[in-house]
């Protein structure tokens, strides 16, 4: 895996333009950079390797077919690919009508199920550490909303807490992650 490229709009704009022009090499580079992130998101949501692989394929085929749909001004490529993977993963679980295990223990176990070998990038490690350092209730709220597509109201129900608390935890969790990353001199220029 290559290192995480600088997540500036500029490099994403270049990537998008190259994909629009039909650069196969760029597609391969984007896959090498973000494949593990997209796969990890899909696998975390579906818990099924085959489904996660199909989602990875769909996401990159979609990127290749319609790169112009990606707008670097609105989100970094990494975030956009994650969003596509989340949508497909959540759709997949809904189609299967399987009820995800949303118990706090399952969410918690899931959040620590990382594979170290792909986390070669310092940035990934820092983000992971910041998420791990969150108080457990905050991390649960983030995982339920991000990976399971729950609204804050459903997060509140799943965790048996008032809706106001769920909203507050989501905001507070993101602030804490941001503050920790900034304090560590995180490489992503956009967080400064």
């Amino acid at each position: 895996m290559t290192d995480v490229p600088e997540s500036t709009d500029e490099s994403d704009v270049r990537i998008r333009d190259a994909l629009i022009a039909g650069s196969e090499r760029t597609l391969a580079e984007v896959y090498d950079t973000y494949g593990p992130v997209v796969y990890g998101v899909a696998l975390h949501i579906t818990r099924e390797q085959g489904a996660a692989e199909d989602i990875v394929q769909d996401v990159f085929v979609e990127l290749w077919r319609r790169p112009e749909r990606f707008d670097p001004q609105r989100a970094p490529l990494r975030g956009w690919l994650c969003m596509l993977a989340r949508r497909r993963g959540i759709d997949w679980t809904r189609r299967r009508r399987t009820r995800p295990d949303l118990s706090p223990t399952a969410v918690e176990l899931a959040s620590s199920g990382f594979e170290d070998d792909v986390l070669v990038s310092t940035a990934y490690k820092q983000v992971r550490k910041a998420v791990e350092d969150l108080p457990t209730p905050h991390r649960q709220a983030i995982f339920l909303a991000y990976y399971h597509g729950l609204t804050y109201r459903d997060v509140a129900k799943a965790l048996g807490i008032p809706e106001g608390t769920a909203k507050w935890r989501l905001r507070s969790a993101l602030r804490r992650i941001g503050e920790q990353l900034t304090a560590e001199g995180f490489e992503d220029a956009t967080l400064e």
Partner: peptide, 15 residues
Amino acid sequence: SRVAEWIGVTTARGP
């Protein structure tokens, strides 16, 4: 949002 865009890397895993 910039923070949220990073959440997905938490579960990164080699396919």
